[in-house]
C-alpha cells in the first residue's frame, strides 16, 4: 500500500476515522463471544483471596469468583460489562458500586425462552416466602443472588443426572442451612430413611407449596409438607417437578417399554410397574376364580353325598 503514502493528510485522517468506526461497531460482537476465561475482570477476581473489609461491620467480604464455575454457569457467555456496566474503569472500584441492585427478572422477563418459568410470579412468591417475611438479622440483605449466584448458577438441563441436580440444588440451601445436616439436630428425624430422601429429592420439594413450576415461596419449617403421599402416590408431585423431564427423556431415548424397567429412581407408591401389577393381579384373580369353582364343585359333591346317604 505504498502508493497511499503520497496521499494528502486529510484522506489519511478519514481512513483512520473509518477504521475506528468499524472497530467500534465490531466491538460488541467481540465481547458477546468472549468466554468467561477471557474476562479482563478475572485477572483480579479469579484470585481466591480477593476481598475487602466492610468498614461498618468489619466483616470480610469476598470479591473472588471461581472461573471454572463461571465458565459452566448459565451466564458464561455474557461479558462482565453486560451486567456491571458503568463505573468500573477506576481501580480500586468505588465502594458505592457494591450496593448496585441487579435483579434477575429485569433481564429474563423479556426472553421468550424463560416464559415457562413464569417470572412475573416470582416477586409475589418471594414476598410470601419465609426469606422475605422473617425478621431474622441474617435475612436483612436477602435477594435473588443470596441463592442464585449469578456467577455460578446453572439451570438444570434435560439429561442431567438426577442425583447431581438434587445435590446441586440442595447445596444452595445448605450453604446457609448447614446445621440441618448436624446429626444431633432432630429437625428431619421424623422422616424415614432421611439420608435416602436427602439424596433423592430437593429441599424445595417439601419446603415450597405444590405448584406446577418450582415456587420461590419457601415455607417456614412448621408450614412445610410432612404429607408422605404428596410424593408417595400415583399422582406424586415429583412427577410435576423433579421427574417431569426425566420420564419424557427416558421414553424418548429408550422407548416406552425400556423406561418401565430402566426407571433409575424408585419411589415407593409412585413408581410402579403397571405391567407387573396388572399381570400379578390378573393371576391372583384367576387363581381365586379357580379356587371358587373348585370349592363349588366340592360343595355339589358333598350335597350329592348327603342325598345319597338319606
Amino acid at each position: 500500500m505504498t502508493h497511499h503514502c503520497s496521499r494528502p493528510r486529510p484522506t489519511r485522517w478519514l481512513a483512520g476515522a473509518l477504521l475506528a468506526l468499524v472497530t467500534s461497531l465490531l466491538a460488541p460482537v467481540a465481547s458477546a463471544v468472549e468466554t468467561a476465561r477471557d474476562h479482563e475482570c478475572l485477572r483480579c477476581h479469579a484470585m481466591s483471596t480477593l476481598a475487602y473489609r466492610e468498614p461498618d461491620s468489619g466483616e470480610i467480604r469476598s470479591l473472588a469468583l471461581d472461573p471454572q464455575r463461571l465458565d459452566h454457569s448459565v451466564h458464561a457467555e455474557l461479558a462482565c460489562s453486560d451486567c456491571h456496566a458503568r463505573g468500573y474503569g477506576r481501580y480500586p472500584h468505588r465502594a458505592k458500586l457494591a450496593d448496585e441492585q441487579l435483579g434477575c427478572v429485569e433481564c429474563h422477563a423479556d426472553d421468550p425462552a424463560d416464559a415457562t418459568y413464569r417470572l412475573d410470579r416470582i416477586a409475589e412468591e418471594f414476598a410470601a416466602s419465609v426469606h422475605a417475611s422473617s425478621d431474622h438479622h441474617k435475612l436483612r440483605q436477602f435477594d435473588c443472588h443470596s441463592c442464585h449466584d449469578p456467577h455460578a448458577f446453572r439451570a438444570s438441563q434435560v439429561g442431567d443426572d438426577l442425583g447431581a441436580i438434587v445435590r446441586r440444588d440442595n447445596q444452595t440451601c445448605l450453604d446457609c442451612h448447614h446445621r440441618v445436616t448436624d446429626p444431633l439436630r432432630g429437625s428431619h428425624a421424623w422422616l424415614p430413611q432421611r439420608d435416602a430422601h436427602w439424596a433423592a429429592v430437593r429441599c424445595i420439594d417439601c419446603h415450597t407449596p405444590t405448584t406446577p413450576q418450582a415456587s420461590h415461596q419457601i415455607l417456614a419449617a412448621a408450614d412445610s409438607s410432612k404429607r408422605c403421599v404428596a410424593c408417595h402416590s400415583r399422582d406424586s408431585r415429583l412427577r410435576e417437578g423433579l421427574y417431569r423431564y426425566r420420564l419424557a427423556q427416558d421414553r424418548a431415548e429408550h422407548g416406552w417399554l425400556t423406561s418401565l424397567v430402566r426407571n433409575d429412581a424408585y419411589i415407593v407408591g409412585m413408581s410402579r410397574s403397571p405391567l407387573l401389577d396388572a399381570l400379578s393381579l390378573a393371576i391372583l384373580a384367576l387363581v381365586a376364580l379357580v379356587i371358587a369353582l373348585h370349592g363349588y364343585g366340592r360343595y355339589r359333591l358333598a350335597r350329592r353325598r348327603k342325598e345319597n346317604d338319606r
Binding site: 430402566r262 429412581a265 424408585y266 410397574s273 400379578s280
Partner: peptide, 12 residues
Amino acid sequence: ISTLWLVAMTHV
C-alpha cells in the same frame, strides 16, 4: 440398572 429398582421389583 438402578439397584433400588431391582430391589423394588424383586420385593414386589
